[in-house]
Nucleic acid binder design. Structure first.
Length: 510
DNA sequence: ATGTGC
């Protein structure tokens, strides 16, 4: 039986969780305990709650009932995922779960603010030149790594080993031509091993390199500075700061410039992270099989490891190695994008606004004790004064939250409000799919997408923009943001309006 | 998501 079938059969047998147990507080809703389920906090307006299908809700319930789980939050962008829904937060002080981190370890967003007025990219020829300069440096598509980069940015095996152990350390940044100051614009610029040392990662990496499926390590390091496929993208934006005092204050602290050009990126840990994640799934699943341990809700995608075991230590080390790759990948992409802008428009200056993940487990303090907060398609949202921002540039404002929407309606920069405590300091990670890829290809048409891009004067590197990535394949972004705002989790600082999009179109003809 | 699908 496939995992999907298993899930579906559970979904069919579930009792109703959307009925009398649910109360509305304002427009946010809370799912109250029933006789069989502990509380799950759901954030979404009524029309957003209608987008949660049975399987997604069942995955939320399965995850909430899994061993050691103390909190589960469902965000407005939630949809079916790998064991746990994409768009959820799962907290455990005692267990680590690979599924609720996700198969793309530390998939993240980053935003580069450029010192360029919007008029600088009005000319379509300039935008075409930028698309070409960026694609030369930061390719899209499966398997592809960086090309046309300077010799100084070549990632040899020893630099590869260093960067997955150290993350964006000063040495690694210097070796790759990344401004060292960008490290402090990261949610986390590096990740340590299970015992809070880099040494653990060094020795874990040596063990991994003995493994046959890691024989491609050097090849995978060549993917540094690339986007990959699927929903990953790079997008040139114009910043539209919201018209209120808080937005202006945050805009200053974040380094946002109203009416100027910025570049938004979405990607993760590429083949290296995928190798690590899939290796962990098969290792843990075969141990569950061998030891006859029951899986949560019978779902193989909800395998876990209790903290302190060798299995948990190995997972945490692998997650950190993948996360370090993703971090350096994003920073290098931003450095290469800046270089591309400078080639086309000499003298362009740029600064990283922020780099923040939506697929990672972090050790945070929840209810006065340390716990692993798994954010799977969810973004950390810590408001002004939160203790963990004390040493950062965002102590007095809260950190930037980067949310991709869609090219038609824009993307958003938000900042957390004190109410975010109710969602384990988290918000959504974007719009969230409303149509599966196959469904989208069946019901949406190319002409509509093309005319949306044309009427908004948005260019793209794609000859055919992938239909399964069309704005209409995703939930209504404004309604998703309204869910977050009306629940008091976060407020909008700026809207980002697309001028051109860079995506993988290699599968667009399917 | 992924050197792309039981």
């Amino acid at each position: 039986m496939s995992p999907t079938t298993m899930n579906r059969s559970h979904a069919e047998s579930r009792t109703s969780y959307t009925g009398p147990g649910m109360i509305a507080t304002g427009e946010a809703t809370a799912l109250l305990p029933t006789e069989t389920t502990p509380p799950i906090r759901v954030f979404g307006t009524e029309s957003i709650r209608d987008t949660f299908d049975d399987l997604c809700l069942q995955q939320a319930v399965n995850s909430r009932l899994a061993p050691g789980v103390t909190d589960l939050v469902l965000n407005p962008d939630a949809h079916c995922g790998y064991g746990a829904p994409v768009g959820c937060v799962m907290v455990s002080p005692t267990h680590i779960y690979p599924g609720p981190v996700g198969v793309d370890i530390k998939c993240s967003m980053s935003l580069l603010q450029l010192d360029l007025p919007t008029e600088a990219v009005d000319d379509r020829k300039v935008r075409r030149a930028l698309i070409s300069a960026i694609c030369q440096r930061t390719p899209t598509g499966a398997g592809k790594g960086q090309r046309s980069v300077t010799k100084a940015r070549h990632v040899n095996r020893s630099l590869g080993k260093q960067l997955v152990v150290e993350g964006a350390s000063a040495d690694v940044c210097r070796a790759l031509g990344i401004p060292t100051g960008w490290a402090m614009r990261c949610e986390d610029s590096f990740h340590l091993g299970h015992d809070d040392t880099a040494g653990a990662l060094e020795s874990r990496l040596e063990t991994l390199l003995q493994r046959r499926d890691m024989s491609n390590f050097s090849d995978k390091m060549q993917q540094l500075g690339s986007y990959g496929g699927g929903n990953h993208f790079g997008e040139c934006e114009v910043v539209e700061l919201a018209d209120d005092d808080q937005a202006r204050r945050c805009g200053d602290a974040f380094g946002l410039q109203d009416g100027k050009v910025a570049f938004l990126s979405h990607c993760g840990s590429r083949g290296f992270g995928h190798n690590l994640a899939s290796g962990q799934f098969s290792t843990l699943q075969s141990k569950f099989d061998r030891w006859g341990i029951p899986l949560p809700a019978g779902d193989r995608q909800l395998v876990y490891a209790p903290l302190g075991t060798d299995e948990a230590n190995d997972y945490l080390d692998d997650m950190a190695l993948g996360a370090n790759f993703a971090t350096v990948n994003h920073l290098l992409i931003n450095a290469l994008v800046l270089e591309a802008f400078q080639e086309v428009i000499p003298g362009t200056k740029g600064n990283l606004v922020y780099f923040i993940s939506h697929n990672i487990a972090r050790k945070e303090i929840v209810d006065n004790r340390p716990a692993w907060v798994h954010r799977k398609g969810a973004t950390r949202a810590m408001p002004a004064g939160h203790h963990s921002l004390a040493e950062t540039p965002f102590a007095k404002t809260g950190h930037p939250i980067l949310l991709p929407g869609n090219p038609r309606d824009g993307s958003a920069v938000m900042v957390a409000q004190p109410g975010a405590a109710a969602s384990c300091y988290s918000v959504n990670h974007g719009a969230g799919r409303v149509l599966g890829r196959r469904h989208a290809k069946r019901v949406l048409d190319q002409a509509t997408i093309d005319s949306e891009f044309e009427s908004n004067d948005i260019l793209s590197n794609c000859r055919q923009y992938p239909i399964d990535e069309a704005p209409a394949a995703y939930k209504d972004f404004n309604e998703v943001l309204r869910s977050v705002k009306s629940a008091g989790l976060a407020s909008e600082v700026a809207r980002l309006k697309a001028r051109f999009v860079i995506k993988d179109a290699s599968k667009a003809d399917d």
